[in-house]
Design a protein around this nucleic acid. Sequence first.
DNA 1: CCATTATAATACCATTTGGTATCATGTATA
DNA 2: TATACATGATACCAAATGGTATTATAATGG
Lengths: 113, 113
Amino acid sequence: MIQTMPSDLQGAFRALADPSRREMLTRLRDGDMTIGDMAGHFPMTRAAVKKHLTILEQGRLISVHARGRERINRLEPAALKDVAGWLDYFSTFWDDKLNRLQTAVEAAEGNSK
Amino acid sequence: MIQTMPSDLQGAFRALADPSRREMLTRLRDGDMTIGDMAGHFPMTRAAVKKHLTILEQGRLISVHARGRERINRLEPAALKDVAGWLDYFSTFWDDKLNRLQTAVEAAEGNSK
DNA sequence: CCATTATAATACCATTTGGTATCATGTATA
DNA sequence: TATACATGATACCAAATGGTATTATAATGG
């Protein structure tokens, strides 16, 4: 169980905050796509799609590789794994019985104050 | 292994996008806090802290309980668990050997085009 | 009761964000 | 080579975001 707090996650969290970008990630889960491919699935211009893909790339959630005049966008799971690692810092709160003990103690403190 | 996509995560992802809010969550990990308590740890006004806590509440990452004139802010791990569940939708990409096979196949397709 | 304290509500501001439109550049291809 | 095609770059816009200041409300304590 990892208990160190990963840093440098701001770009990833920022990228994940937009629902279109999250949907783009789920589409890339099924295979690499060009910008044009991706734009075909969203009600926005290619330019807007490219902006989103750039933000995903800045968050290291995808990588972009040139192939001729196309740009192949590929899911990069490492950053997603880091985000999951950050969340794991809280995992004792949803699966550890110590959590219930702690909140019970704090509730008692609150009532007695 | 869960393979359904949790919905209604927008509020949680939005709340997690800000580094101050993520730090607030880590502080609540050590125990419930009032707005004033929290404001003591951040270089911003109480009003700003309260705005952040409201966004965390809207994302269901915390709950707020009145106690006299104070508001007790408490970590609510359920939404964090849902976020972790969403990320788990990608977990095969960082720990499954099938991933390497898939990307190898796609790279071959790309070269042959 | 009165002063203090903790929070709420509102208005306001600068910056960022998500989007468009337009034009430039590089790459296939007839 | 000429032309179409995929993308990049830039400027621009409305709305959301992160913050402040100010004022109001409500609970606590002497």
